[in-house]
C-alpha cells in the first residue's frame, strides 16, 4: 500500500535517475520540472508512462491540462491523489 509520501518519493527518484544534471537534494516537490528543463520533451512520454504504472490507470493525452506535469505536487494531485486516498482508506 503506497501513501502520498511513497508516491512522491518514487516520482522524485525517477526524475533524479533520469536527469544527470540535478542532484536529489536540489529537486523539491514544487520544482518546475518542465520550465527548468529537468525533464525534456523526449522524457515526458517516459514520465507519463511511469505515472501510469504508479497510478494503475492510463493517462489520456487529449485530456491533459496545462500545468498538470509542472512539478511533483501537481503530478500527484492530478494523477495519483485519488489512488493514494483510496489506498489510505483501505
Amino acid at each position: 500500500m503506497k501513501t502520498q509520501e511513497d508516491m512522491k518519493k518514487e516520482l522524485h527518484a525517477w526524475i533524479v535517475k533520469n536527469n544527470a544534471k540535478i542532484k536529489a537534494e536540489e529537486l523539491c516537490n514544487d520544482t518546475d520540472i518542465i520550465r527548468e528543463r529537468i525533464i525534456n520533451s523526449l522524457q515526458i512520454i517516459d514520465l507519463l508512462l511511469f505515472v501510469e504504472r504508479l497510478s494503475g490507470t492510463s493517462v489520456e493525452v487529449e485530456q491533459l491540462k496545462p500545468g498538470a506535469f509542472k512539478n511533483i505536487d501537481t503530478i500527484y494531485q492530478n494523477f495519483l491523489e485519488r489512488q493514494g486516498d483510496e489506498q489510505c482508506n483501505k
Binding site: I34, I44, I45, V61, L64, K65
Partner: peptide, 23 residues
C-alpha cells in the same frame, strides 16, 4: 485561444504532449 500544432500521430508525439502541458 490556446492551440497546439497539427502533429502527425499527436498522441504519441512528445512535443504534442509538452504543448498540452506547457502551452
Amino acid at each position: 485561444e490556446q492551440a497546439t500544432d497539427p502533429f502527425f500521430n499527436p498522441l504519441v508525439n512528445a512535443k504534442y504532449v509538452v504543448q498540452k502541458l506547457e502551452p
